[in-house]
């Protein structure tokens, strides 16, 4: 059992990181912490994909002429993750700008306070 966990260490750690990000996204009231949790989930999934592509004893896919294809790691997850990282940054920037707008309106980063204030504003009008 322990040997199996040690063997699959990358997968286990990525699951743990995913869980941490998930719980943060759900339960932490602070919006910036929520965005950090989302980033944690992102990177954990990237780690899982990159670990999927690894081949034991493989090299980075910089191909030399006349070599067998089993010498290299799988390039497909690498390509997927590469674009994913850059898109993750752009979504983070979008979320941060939305957070800034919310702060400008309600003067709080706490989601509970923001929801209560929004409810108050609805009742007052």
């Amino acid at each position: 059992m322990l040997e199996l966990i040690l063997e699959q260490r990358y997968y286990m750690i990525s699951i743990i990181l995913f869980a941490i990000g998930f719980v943060t996204l759900f339960l932490h009231p602070n919006l910036i912490k929520k965005i950090i949790g989302l980033n944690l989930m992102d990177t954990s999934i990237f780690l899982f994909l990159a670990a999927m592509g690894y081949v034991g004893g493989g090299q980075a896919p910089i191909i030399e002429e006349g070599s067998s294809w089993t010498m290299y790691i799988n390039p497909v997850p690498g390509g997927l993750v590469l674009t994913g990282i850059v898109v993750a940054v752009s979504t983070t920037a979008l979320f941060l700008s939305l957070t800034h707008r919310l702060y400008r309106k309600y003067h709080s980063l706490n989601l509970d306070v923001i929801l209560m204030l929004a409810k108050k504003g609805q009742e007052d009008t």
């Binding site: 997968y11 670990a51 034991g56 004893g57 294809w69």
Partner: peptide, 13 residues
């Protein structure tokens, strides 16, 4: 982890 016969390493790769 790192298995050469994993189904992820298919004919596409």
């Amino acid at each position: 982890f790192g298995d050469l016969n994993a189904p992820a390493l298919n004919e596409v790769a």
